[in-house]
Amino acid sequence: MQNLGDFKLPQFFNYPPYFTLQPVRETRDKQVQLWKEMILDYCRTQKIYVIGLEEDFPLFTNHVIERSLSHEARQAFLSALVSDGRAEWMDKSHRKCLILWHGVQDWADLILHFVKENGLEDSVMTVEEIRTGTESRGTELHGMDRTLLMRALKLLERKGKLVIFKGNFGRR
C-alpha cells in the first residue's frame, strides 16, 4: 500500500476508475463517500485547512497509476463535503475550500477549553498568539488556519464569551 508522508492511502486510491466520476448513481454515491472520508482523514492528520481546486493537492493525483481528478470531480467531492457541513467554499467561484474536520462550533469549544486549561480567562491575547504562541503548542489550535480561527472567535463573541478589539484582539 502506498503512503503519502505518514498518511496511509486507502486501497481504492490505486484503482483507476475512482478518478473518473461514475455515471451510475449508486456507484457514484459510494465513490463520493470514499473520497470524502479520505479527504477529511488526510486534512485532519496533515493539518490542512484549505484546499485549492486548481492547486496540486496530493490526493488529486496518483502518479503511480497516472490518474488525476478532473476539475468537475474535485468540485463534486468537495461540494459533497460542503453539503455535509464538513467544508465551506471560501469564494463564489468555488476555487478554494475550507475543510472543517472539526466544525466551527467544535473549534470554539476547543478555544474555550484551551483558555481554561491555561488560566487565561480575563486576559488579552492576540490572534497570532493563539495560533503560534507557546501556550498553544501541542494543542490542535497550534498552526490553525487564520480564517477558521477568526470564524470560531466571532462565534464566541456572539455568545458573549469574548471581545475582539480592533487592531488588538482580546478575550474574556
Binding site: P16, P17, F19, T20, V24, E26, T27, E66
Partner: peptide, 19 residues
Amino acid sequence: LLDEGLAMIDDGHRDGKRR
C-alpha cells in the same frame, strides 16, 4: 453492466479511451 453496478468507467488514461 454499468447499471448493475458491476462495472466502473475510467476516462483518465492517456490514450483517451474509456475503460
